[in-house]
Amino acid sequence: MSPLPPKKDYIGAMTPMPVKASCAISVRNLRVKYGEREILHGVNFDVPAGETMVILGGSGSGKSTLLRTLVGLERPSSGEIYIMGKEFANISEDERDELRKGIGMSFQSGALFGSMTVGENVALPLQEHTDLDPSTIEIMVRLKLDQVGLSGFENYMPAQLSGGMKKRAAIARALSMDPQVLFFDEPSAGLDPIIAAGIDELILKLKRAFKMSIVVVTHELASAFLIADRMIVLDKGVIVADATTDEMKNSTQPRVRQFLDRVPEPEVTGEIDYLQMLTGDIPPIRQ
């Protein structure tokens, strides 16, 4: 683990710390590539157990990629990930599956199993990984669906649900194993404000009642400030801020302010570069 030099423009600037057992998640020098193109350029952060971490960042900044890497769907090209104190990025499939039983993930698109009813989707992990009685599982499924406001929809097929309902069903499924660590990719994007507020409320309650450690990717600033204990701002695959919610509110760091105040990105390319880009003299981004 080679520590990064501390960056001046980094609020709460930290060099990679030793991994603490009390952290639900620790990420060290994480680099992720799709093919030749590097998306995350050495990311470091910690999520203390029982806290909610919000990852902010513009579209395409690598938030989903970061989340996918944290749950083991993308392999980092280098760096380490610790989930509940255990190395997660470089372990065997069996060990990883064991850890994953304590993790819940709600995908940006929902990713419900289209061939199963909503209830079957939520029940599946319980049926596969536990010895619970089917009647207990039925009650648990109804409890989870009630928590996301989908009581009575257990026999619907995902295709019969609206976009927002799909997303909530996916959250119910992510909750089904009562995970210690929960990941949300844009949980309230595209939902109406009342439902979105309900989801924020649910995240707060889950943290309190079940002591879950939660990582949420979102663009919704109001929601972020409501639910987060800590926030990081990701910009083009680099963390430009890592701070508590209050520190973040008062940050004077330009890139953070720009994101928080919703200032459009200033033009970074010069006229010559722009001309070259239009005429194809600068090669496009390689896949």
């Binding site: 319980l126 536990t130 207990t136 599982i137 009562d178």
Partner: peptide, 13 residues
Amino acid sequence: KYIDSAGVASLVE
């Protein structure tokens, strides 16, 4: 100290 939703479901039963 801790009861998860499987525990709750058992109590409901």
